[in-house]
């Protein structure tokens, strides 16, 4: 089956203060995969996601979303940042945070209305957070905050979902709930890319994987490339995980 390429990354190099954190990355992520990005701390996983999202400007290379620049396609892409990237004491409610996901389709100046509110409520329901809609966000647990972020990405009704460690600091129940939603997204033909830390769950959760450690080590279907060889190359030590297929 010939698949469309959702994200094309060409010769991408990103540096902070002229120190490269991503070095000459080439990636072609097919449409409809549920992909994990794995690699050690400092491997540039978040940086890769942020470069795809045009948040970080590369010093070389380019990113294309369905063959066009991010700027033209930003409505097709939803983003779940790391939970720690925002101030959860901000004076706002769960519903309001989810509504922020609709701002992209609204564009400048236009305000969210009933339609956006309805969409946000539906997304809250999908992640099982409807009863917390009016709660101030600092009153939510870590797992609940992560669900709110997920709901916010869902209201973007995107084709591509980029998630930066959505399982960080959540309990097993929330992790299961989140992965079920991600699998649903894939079933609906969406492309989902997740920065992931727990190597044990990669074969269970994902069908595609990218090994990253400043350079790209490997990318492809989990069943073909998720092996000790690539893990060792990525993590630098003789890494053994039991991979059940």
């Amino acid at each position: 089956m010939k698949q469309n390429i959702a994200i094309t990354v060409d010769d991408l190099t990103v540096a902070y203060n002229y120190k490269p954190v991503l070095w000459d990355i080439d990636l072609a992520i097919p449409e409809g995969v549920l992909m994990a990005i794995v690699g050690p701390n400092g491997a540039g996983k978040s940086t890769l996601i942020k470069s795809i999202l045009d948040i970080i400007k590369p010093i070389a290379g380019s990113v294309k979303i369905f063959d066009k620049s991010y700027k033209e396609q930003h409505k097709l892409v939803a983003y779940v940042p790391q939970k720690g990237s925002v101030d959860w004491d901000f004076p706002t409610t769960a519903l309001d945070v989810v509504m922020m996901g609709t701002y992209g389709s609204l564009g400048w100046i236009k305000r969210p209305g009933q339609k956006q509110k309805k969409e946000a409520l539906e997304a809250l329901e999908k992640v099982g957070m409807l009863e917390f809609k009016s709660r101030q966000i600092s009153q939510l647990s870590g797992g609940q905050q992560q669900r709110i972020f997920l709901a916010r990405a869902l209201v973007q009704k995107a084709s591509i979902y980029l998630m930066d460690e959505p399982f960080q600091g959540v309990d097993a129940t929330t992790e299961k709930a989140i992965i079920n939603i991600l699998k649903e997204l894939r079933k609906a033909g969406k492309t989902v890319i997740v920065v992931h830390h727990d190597l044990q769950t990669v074969p269970e959760y994902f069908d595609w994987v990218t090994f990253l450690n400043v350079k790209k080590i490997a990318t492809g279907p989990v069943k073909d490339i998720f092996n000790d060889d690539n893990l060792t190359k990525t993590y630098g030590i003789n890494y053994k995980v039991s991979v059940q297929q």
Binding site: L53, K75, P81, F90, I109
Partner: peptide
Amino acid sequence: FTFFKELKLSTFDKGLATSLGF
């Protein structure tokens, strides 16, 4: 009044604001 939404979003979550094209 004009930019309340944009101000709120960019104050709360700069990353999302950028990715949404603001």
